[in-house]
């Protein structure tokens, strides 16, 4: 907030008075940096790559966006890196000694960040490939036991609280590489790992089509994850709790 111009001389004068009033005030120790006691300051190891607000690197998709993803989902990913279910050495190293409580706090921080979504590059695909992507996302393929993405990730594809992430607003490279890493087992989670089952039923062409269709979709006005209980998942998923896992 800028002060009105007519107040400036008065402000300058009062600043001078303050200086005159404390001529012998000790000089702040030059080199002792002031460290804010905030979570944001504590997690510099996270924000160096994922951004201070978890914005990630939307242009490349290399460092995923964390902002606004459901907290349960984010905490689960930290746990999966810690347990070696998700494989990426720098992440495994960074989270190896963290407690469940601290990981949850970090997950809550990024889940609460509100950052506008950015478009990222999408490869040009023939119309029939995009149509195939749309079909898989919205209807699935019952012949191959492929449920629609919407069946779990919500009718708006913005995710469902507290454990299911959104799929819109993600870069093409990110979606296709995650589906690929379920197939190469560099990304896994607690059994039953329903996404691993689905990814292994997809062909390479399916993955391209789904990722391209999702990444090129217009974003809904409300990007928040839908409330808990908005979906009735058709597969048993370990990440959705023991009840689902036991089914």
């Amino acid at each position: 907030m800028k002060p009105p111009d007519r107040l400036r001389p008065a402000l300058h004068a009062s600043a001078l008075l303050v200086l005159l009033a404390f001529p012998f005030a000790p000089r702040a120790q030059e080199a002792a940096p002031v460290v804010p006691d905030t979570l944001r300051q504590r997690i510099a190891a996270c924000t160096a790559c994922h951004g201070v607000h978890g914005e990630g690197t939307p242009q490349s998709g290399f460092f995923p966006r964390l902002a606004g993803k459901p907290a349960g989902y984010l905490a689960r990913q930290l746990q999966d890196f810690q347990n070696g279910l998700r494989k990426y050495a720098p992440m495994e190293y960074t989270v190896r000694g963290l407690s469940p409580a601290y990981m949850r706090e970090i997950a809550d921080y990024f889940a609460a960040q509100q950052v506008p979504y950015e478009r990222s590059p999408v490869p040009r695909l023939p119309a029939d490939a995009l149509a195939r992507g749309e079909r898989l996302v919205t209807q699935g393929d019952p012949d191959r036991k492929l449920p629609a993405c919407q069946a779990c990730h919500g009718s708006q594809l913005t995710g469902v609280q507290p454990d299911i992430p959104g799929l819109v607003g993600l870069p093409y490279d990110y979606i296709s590489s995650q589906l690929g890493s379920w197939r190469t087992r560099t990304r896994a989670t607690v059994a039953p790992d329903c996404m691993a089952e689905i990814a292994n039923r997809l062909s390479a062409e399916d993955i391209t089509a789904v990722a391209a269709w999702l990444a090129s979709r217009e974003l809904p006005a409300d990007m928040h994850a839908q409330p808990a209980g908005s979906v009735n998942p058709p597969l048993a998923c370990g990440v959705l709790g023991a009840k689902e896992a036991a089914r």
Partner: peptide, 24 residues
């Protein structure tokens, strides 16, 4: 290169961390 968190202990349950510079 790696950065990382200080050890998490009973006395320091929310450690500060150092950014990794490998990418930068």
């Amino acid at each position: 290169l790696l950065g990382g968190f200080a050890p998490l202990t009973k006395d320091n349950p929310r450690p500060y961390s150092m950014p990794p510079f490998a990418q930068q």
